[in-house]
């Protein structure tokens, strides 16, 4: 089992032992490099989402819950989303494709297949929650495909436009 943190590209795996509800982390492997980590101990508090995190710098509470397939963690005012991935599995992002950042309705399509676009050029406008959002080209390149038309409803993660070099 490997782990990914949202917005980070690294892949992690964790070596741990559990005894009487207390987990001790022995090492964490980041992209194949193993780091010894003897000082972390984690245990559950009560029957809710609260855990106790014990490190060199002391003991702190954290909140963790698996929600819709992802692990959500609150630690010291920040929130992290962690995914479990099968070893050697693919990441969810498809290369060169621009996926819908949220579910919504396509308001406008500004580009055609075969057209060359420059970085930052608006490609589509999506409306969600009464606000408009522009989808812009993350890099310069040629539009390989435009997968939706004006008025279409799109789900989060749907590939809207594919960009080549």
């Amino acid at each position: 089992m490997e782990w990914e943190i949202a917005d980070l590209e690294d892949k992690f795996s964790v070596d741990l032992t559990e005894r009487e509800g207390k987990v001790t982390i022995s090492s964490v492997t980041v992209n194949g490099n193993t780091h010894e980590f003897p000082e972390i101990r984690i245990s559950k508090i009560g029957k809710n989402s609260t855990i106790s995190l014990e490190t060199e710098s002391g003991t702190r509470p954290a909140h963790v819950k698996k929600i819709e397939g992802k692990w959500w963690i609150h630690l010291e005012g920040e929130v992290y989303v962690v995914n479990e991935v099968e070893k050697g599995g693919k990441t969810s992002e498809s290369a060169g494709g621009l996926s819908a950042p949220m579910p919504g309705t396509i308001l406008e399509v500004m580009v055609k297949e075969g057209q060359r676009v420059r970085e930052g050029q608006p490609l589509m406008t999506i409306e969600a929650m009464k606000m408009e959002h522009r989808i812009v080209a993350p890099k310069s390149g040629e539009v390989i495909s435009v997968n939706f038309n004006q008025g279409d409803r799109v789900d989060m993660g749907a590939t809207l436009v594919e960009l080549g070099d």
């Binding site: 943190i5 982390i25 964490v28 972390i40 984690i42 245990s43 855990i51 963690i73 010291e76 920040e78």
Partner: peptide
């Protein structure tokens, strides 16, 4: 930008939570 914690600690929490069965709680 936030002051993120060490990512190794974050994945340790997730892996521990899984081991402790926090994903098994019935009334999510």
């Amino acid at each position: 930008d936030p002051n993120y914690s060490n990512p190794k600690i974050i994945v340790s929490i997730a892996a521990s939570a899984k081991r402790l069965g926090l994903d098994k709680s019935a009334n999510i």
